[in-house]
Design a protein around this nucleic acid. Structure first.
Lengths: 195, 195
DNA sequence: CCCGTTATTTACCGTAACAGGAAAAAGTCG
DNA sequence: CGACTTTTTCCTGTTACGGTAAATAACGGG
């Protein structure tokens, strides 16, 4: 029940609707935790069934009525119980790493373009983190505990993206240096398969 | 089908039994990809059904007979097709980050001990990576493509662990500096719940 | 001799997560 | 009119994760 806890964590900031949560999971917390709206709504039903959150229906004209979810005291204690348990160190689980593990049995050209795409991707994210950091924490310090958490989060995100971006760059360089040493002939049998 | 591809990637090195694969997924590739033996065996059956791998039974006395799986040509091309597709940048998905996001609504003491455990954990892994690096690549260079992949892998792993370890350290310092500013009263209602 | 471990595979159970496609409803904007 | 936003819900899958457990037979300790 990790997604559920992530939702509870979001709701500590303020009550939200599923729609808002979906958007939150697309930006702020979504930088390191992905979930689409269907997943969110399903999880919200479960949390409501367990009494961890309470929905208040707000009648709207024009738009569908919305359900604003608030943490119940039970939800708060549940979150705190979960937070008091030791965290499980996650695996990296990046496709790229699996491919690198079998680098001599695959085609380098696609890997190269993939690395370039990833380089751009991680650089973008890094810039994004830095931008938010500069905006929210120009001093680089946090005043209260909530801010501290977010500052640390952003810093970790920034560093992580930087590190992966650097890695992509170095991998590309190393691949260029290794040029021509591949033993694999390029694929051409896949063109007719699966459209 | 990511686990399946990871298995195929392992089998490019040499034919292996499910048992060996399970151990591999516990050490080398398992540093960034977790899977228990049940998962491996289940995935192996699927791969065999699709014709990507072939099992050769080796009769043993004393021990149960083992099934040595070899990549078929179809398996090789399947792996190469998969490797030619763009990789999906994974999310970080660390419980710790979710907790930091709600740092003002949870208890800091458990987070602190958790951070200390994690610090030790990531330091251990970092040392492990460095040890392997020094042993396998004392020069810091790779001679062929296979070695290059593994060198890059190890380097990424080492840096990642180092980064996370540093992060834990800083987070602990920051929490100490923030000492006493927590607004949350410690939990004591959980003692009777769930054992 | 019982017990635990190693080696090796297989069988269940369940839940959680991920991926996608679809449909309501009623407003706004071009 | 059509496209888009807002908001929720339902569907069908697959993949992954987690635990429990059973075969089988050797080997080693107390």
């Amino acid at each position: 029940m990790a997604l559920g806890d992530a939702i509870l964590a979001c709701l500590t900031e303020r009550p939200m609707t599923g729609y808002e949560l979906a958007k939150t999971f697309d930006s702020s917390i979504g930088f390191f935790w992905k979930a689409d709206h269907q997943q969110i709504y399903r999880e919200l039903s479960k949390l409501r069934d367990r009494g961890y959150i309470q929905g208040r229906e707000v009648v709207q004209s024009g738009k569908p009525n919305k359900l604003i979810y608030t943490l119940t005291p039970e939800g708060r204690t549940a979150l705190r119980h979960w937070s008091a348990r030791p965290s499980t160190p996650p695996s990296i689980k990046d496709d790229l790493l699996v491919r690198l593990h079998a680098l001599d049995s695959i085609d380098i050209e696609p890997i190269r373009t993939d690395l370039m795409d990833r380089l751009e991707h991680h650089r973008d994210r890094h810039e994004n983190y830095e931008r938010i950091l500069k905006k929210r924490f120009p001093e680089g310090t946090a005043s209260d505990v909530l801010d501290l958490g977010n500052l640390l989060l952003l810093r970790l995100g920034a560093r992580h993206e930087q590190m992966v971006a650097d890695f992509c760059e170095e991998a590309l360089e190393a691949l260029s240096a290794m040029n021509g040493k591949s033993t694999v002939v390029p694929l051409d049998d896949g063109k007719r398969e699966k459209g």
